[in-house]
Design a binder for these strands. Structure first.
Lengths: 203, 203
DNA sequence: CTTTTAATATATCGATCGTTCTATTATTTA
DNA sequence: TAAATAATAGAACGATCGATATATTAAAAG
C-alpha cells in the first residue's frame, strides 16, 4: 500500500539505543541518530514524533528485550527461587563482562541523566525498574515460604537490599568495571541470604 | 592591583553547582550558568577556561564541602568506628530529606551522565568516590580489630557492600525519594554488620 | 496504467550552542 | 595623576541544535 520502510523499528531502535546508551540523552544529537540509523531526521520524526518520543521507544524496547519479556519470566519459572536470584546476578555479571555492549544499564543511567525529565519517560523508567524489584521480592518470598532462607530474613528489607545491589552494580560497571569488584559487590549483597554466585571460571 | 571580582569563586561555584546538579552536565547551557551566576560567559571563560573546566571546579568544591574536607574526618575521629559508619548513613539520610537541595549526589550522577567523559573529570570522580569507600573500609577494619563486628565479616567484601549501599541510596534518592525506602535500604546494607540506624523521629 | 498511501530525502528553518574578540570598567601601584 | 593589571560586559562568531515544509520515491489497490 505504500513505500516500504528501509529499516524496521526493532533494528532502528537497537541502533539508536547504542548511541543513547553510550552518550546519554542530552549529549546525543539528531545527527548522531541519523548517522547511526542511516535514516534522515525527517524520517525519524515521521515515525517517532520527536527526540523524546524516539528515546521513549528505545527505552521501552530496551526494557522488553533486556529484562522483562525474556529473562525475568525464565528465571521466575525455575523450581528453586534461590536459583532465580543467583541466576539474575550471574546474568548481570555476564552483561557487564560482554565486550560489545555499552557499560551500565540504560534505564538506570536515565534516572541520573536528564533523560527522565519528561513525566512519561520518568514513569516508564520507574515501572520497568520496579519490575526488577518485584521479581526479587517475589523470589525471596518464595524462598522464605519454602524454608530455604534464614528465618531472620525480612523479605521487604532483603528485597530492597538486593535491588540496591543491582543499582550499585550498574553504577560501578560504569565507574570502574573491574570483574573482581563486581563479584565482591554481589557477594556482599547475597551473603545475608546465605547465597552466592560461582567464582569466575578461569579461562 | 586590578578590578575586583563581583562574585568570589566559592559563591560562583555553588550557584553553578545547583544548575549542573539539577540538569546534568550536557543539559546545562552556558546561558543557564550566566543566568545563575549573574556573570557574563566571557567572565566565566576568563576564570575557568571552558565549560568542562568550570564543571571540574564545581565537582572539586562539591566533593570538598560535601564529604572530604569536613564530614569524613569528623566521623573518622569518633572513638567508636561503628558510630562513624552509622553516622555517615544518618548524614546521607538527612541530605536526602533536605528540601532545599537537589536530590542525589552530583559525583554519582556524573558517572552515569556524560559529564565524566573528559579523562580529568573521570579521574576526579573516581578519586573522590574512592575516598568514601576507603573511609568505609577503614572503619570496618577498625571495628573488626576491636572485636566489634561478627567474626564472619570479610572487610573488603563488607566495604564493597556498604559502598554499594551508598551508590544505591543516591540513585533511589532520584528515582523514588521515599524516606521509608531509603531507610529500608540502609537497614539492609547495615544488617550484615549487626548495625542499624535509628528509626525516623516522629514529628 | 492511474490513484492512493506512506516512507523517505533534501533543504532549510530560527534558535541556541560553546566560544572568542574587543572594549570598558574598577582597582592598585608608581 | 598616570600606568598597569585584571575582571567584566557586549556583541558576535561559526557550528550545531531540534524540528519542519516540500517534494520525491516506492509500493499496493483500483
Amino acid at each position: 500500500m505504500s513505500r516500504p520502510r528501509v529499516l524496521n523499528d526493532d533494528e532502528l531502535l537497537d541502533r539508536a539505543r547504542d548511541i543513547f546508551w553510550r552518550q546519554g540523552y542530552a549529549a546525543t544529537s539528531l545527527r548522531d541518530l541519523t548517522a547511526a540509523t542511516g535514516l534522515s531526521s525527517a524520517a525519524l520524526y515521521n515515525r517517532f514524533g520527536d527526540k523524546a518520543g524516539l528515546f521513549r521507544e528505545v527505552l521501552r524496547r530496551y526494557a522488553d528485550t533486556g529484562l522483562s519479556a525474556e529473562r525475568l519470566p525464565r528465571l521466575a519459572a525455575l523450581p528453586d527461587p534461590r536459583a532465580a536470584i543467583t541466576g539474575f546476578f550471574e546474568d548481570l555479571l555476564a552483561l557487564s563482562e560482554a565486550a560489545n555492549t555499552p557499560s551500565g544499564c540504560l534505564l538506570i543511567n536515565t534516572v541520573l541523566d536528564g533523560g527522565a525529565e519528561a513525566p512519561e519517560t520518568r514513569a516508564l523508567v520507574r515501572e520497568r525498574l520496579g519490575e526488577v524489584e518485584v521479581f526479587l521480592r517475589t523470589q525471596i518470598e518464595r524462598s522464605k515460604a519454602k524454608g530455604l532462607l534464614p528465618a531472620r530474613i525480612d523479605p521487604p528489607v532483603a528485597a530492597e537490599g538486593l535491588f540496591g545491589t543491582v543499582l550499585a552494580l550498574r553504577v560501578i560497571a560504569r565507574l570502574d568495571p573491574d570483574p573482581v569488584r563486581l563479584r565482591r559487590l554481589i557477594a556482599a549483597g547475597l551473603s545475608p541470604l546465605g547465597l552466592s554466585v560461582p567464582a569466575a571460571t578461569s579461562p
